[in-house]
């Protein structure tokens, strides 16, 4: 249940809840394809989902700009700004974190910061909600963090997703890092993770 006012729904014990959430996110990032459950420590207004909101409550602050794809996200944006101090931007190229919508048009992803060859870390992290992380078409992934291969099965990916991810990998060390979310669950596909044909 979303908080009744903007003032509700943040971490109740920020030091320990954000540490726990960060360790799960770090696990997910270090082991691409692994699903972690961030729980319901935060109750955000729509369209923010619990996993994306927990991620932002853990990592966003006045040093990071956040961009929302959904034009009806004013309440969520206000909630985020109140709880984290993060400013919301209308310019996707400025965003550290981009909250996408389901079926986000992948052609617009090229507008996000990819970093430069000298500073590839100055790049966006995208939060993509999907219908499910578990019962979609299996995709095989390889790369650092994966011992041999891993299989992810997200359902509800945008059209052209695999092609866009292939371009992103080819751009290494520049590129964006993608987090797929569904409810309170999250999996990471950093720019090093390759989707391979099975």
């Amino acid at each position: 249940m979303a908080g009744t006012t903007l003032l509700d729904g943040g971490f109740t014990a920020p030091v320990f809840q954000s540490q726990a959430a960060f360790r799960l996110v770090m696990d997910a990032m270090a082991q691409p394809g692994r699903i972690v459950d961030l729980g319901h420590a935060v109750q955000p207004p729509a369209p923010l989902e619990p996993a994306a909101a927990a991620f932002l409550a853990t990592l966003a602050d006045y040093d990071t700009l956040v961009w929302f794809e959904d034009s009806g996200a004013d309440t969520a944006a206000s909630w985020l700004t109140f709880h984290t101090g993060a400013a919301v931007t209308r310019d996707p190229s400025m965003a550290s974190y981009a909250v996408l919508s389901q079926n986000s048009p992948v052609s617009s992803w090229r507008n996000f910061a990819m970093g430069s060859l000298s500073y590839p870390d100055r790049s966006a992290t995208l939060l993509l909600p999907v219908e499910s992380l578990r019962d979609g078409t299996p995709l095989t992934v390889r790369g650092p963090g994966i011992e041999t291969v891993a299989v992810i099965s997200p359902r509800g990916l945008p059209d052209g997703f695999t092609e866009t991810m292939a371009i992103n990998v080819a751009r290494f060390p520049q590129g964006f890092d993608l987090l797929m979310t569904c409810g309170s669950e999250l999996l990471a596909l950093p720019r090093t993770t390759r989707l391979v044909e099975t």
Partner: peptide
């Protein structure tokens, strides 16, 4: 906490770009 968040953001980018000094 703000320092931790800043370092945590750096750690996530470091993991995403193995070997690159953030």
């Amino acid at each position: 906490e703000q320092t931790k968040r800043m370092i945590r953001r750096a750690i996530l980018k470091a993991i995403a770009i193995p070997g690159y000094q953030v």
